[in-house]
């Protein structure tokens, strides 16, 4: 119980830190970027929206920093993120809510796939130590894990999109179709997801393989595994029920955390493929100096990570009692 409370306190503290960063960053930057933004959008948005912006970013108000901070916190807590400037008059909340499902679908499913595939390959590679698979894999995946997402995306577009013309690489479905739950539309969405998902899978799977392989190797050297071999248990059982079962524990924590990073984890892939998820909108907001949208998306991405960490901490504490005192 004390453990859970401590983790909750940490959660609250980090959330507060992220909120405060969001508040302070535009005010600390040289040349006050908010002034430039407001000047840029003057005339394009209604006077009330402009006034709200000035208050939000502390431009031309006589309020003290402390009272600005107070009203900022209240606004964030009640979900009043303001109006988007680049997509005026759409509200920030509206854009964010439309973006979330696309990212969750694309990045979420790919992350789960990468974990399952990578962990299985890691188990096999550690089990067949010194085999062909095991000797080529570590160097290969050390290299795939340093490929920048965006560059691999560009190369896949070049090969499969432009040269071979096999797969679409722009947006998440054909502009000509209207979204519906028909087979044709869903098929089209899946087709558009293949290249971005492959990019993400190739660049992330190496980490799962290598960490699983390395913990599995350490576990295989344990006495209880030797005991199982001495008892003459079938190999499959030793591999899966004895070694992998324990070796996977630290990886599960990593997996829970990576689910939290889903929302902000594929920003560049969404950018390269013009896939209209959270990351795409974050970059669009940055490039258009749409600070209200940018702040809301950053908070959302951070919040997702914090919730995932909280859940994974508590789950680990339940699964593995030894960790309860450590945190």
């Amino acid at each position: 119980m004390r453990f859970a409370l401590r983790r909750l306190a940490f959660f609250a503290l980090t959330l507060w830190a992220a909120l405060t960063l969001n508040f302070l960053l535009p005010r600390l930057m040289p040349g006050n970027p908010a002034v430039a933004m407001i000047a840029k959008f003057k005339g394009g948005v209604s006077p009330q929206a402009l006034k709200a912006l000035e208050i939000q970013f502390g431009v031309e108000t006589h309020k003290s920093l402390v009272s600005q901070y107070g009203s900022y916190i209240v606004n964030m807590a009640t979900g009043r993120f303001g109006t988007s400037l680049s997509q005026y008059p759409a509200s920030v909340g509206h854009i964010v809510l439309n973006a979330i499902p696309w990212t969750l679908g694309l990045v979420g499913i790919t992350t789960i796939l990468a974990f399952i595939l990578g962990t299985s390959i890691g188990i096999l590679s550690a089990w067949r130590r010194g085999g062909a698979l095991d000797s080529i894999m570590p160097p290969t995946f050390v290299i795939t894990s340093v490929i920048p997402y965006f560059w691999l995306g560009l190369v896949l577009i070049l090969v499969f999109g432009v040269q071979l013309k096999w797969l679409p690489y722009f947006f998440s479905y054909d502009y000509t179709l209207t979204p519906s739950f028909s087979a044709a539309f869903i098929g089209n969405v899946l087709q558009h997801a293949i290249l971005p998902a492959a990019t993400l899978l190739i660049t992330t799977i190496g980490t799962w393989i290598l960490t699983m392989r390395n913990t599995m190797i350490t576990t295989l050297a344990e006495d209880y595994v030797r005991m199982a071999r001495a008892k003459g248990l079938p190999n499959r059982r030793i591999m899966l029920d004895y070694a992998a079962r324990n070796a996977i524990l630290p990886n599960l924590t990593g997996f829970a955390m990576s689910l939290g990073f889903v929302l902000g984890g594929a920003i560049l892939i969404e950018y390269v493929f013009n896939y209209q998820g959270v990351g795409y909108w974050l970059l669009a907001a940055v490039n258009n100096e749409d600070f209200p949208l940018m702040q809301a998306l950053f908070l959302l991405i951070t919040l997702a990570v914090l919730v995932a960490i909280l859940i994974s901490d508590i789950a680990t504490a339940i699964l593995d009692p030894r960790t309860r005192d450590a945190g």
Partner: peptide
């Protein structure tokens, strides 16, 4: 710990965006 859990790349993007 606080800095460790704030997503790094989005944070870099917004800082670079202001700059």
């Amino acid at each position: 710990d606080v800095l460790l859990v704030i997503p790094l790349f989005p944070l870099l993007i917004i800082i670079a965006g202001y700059l």
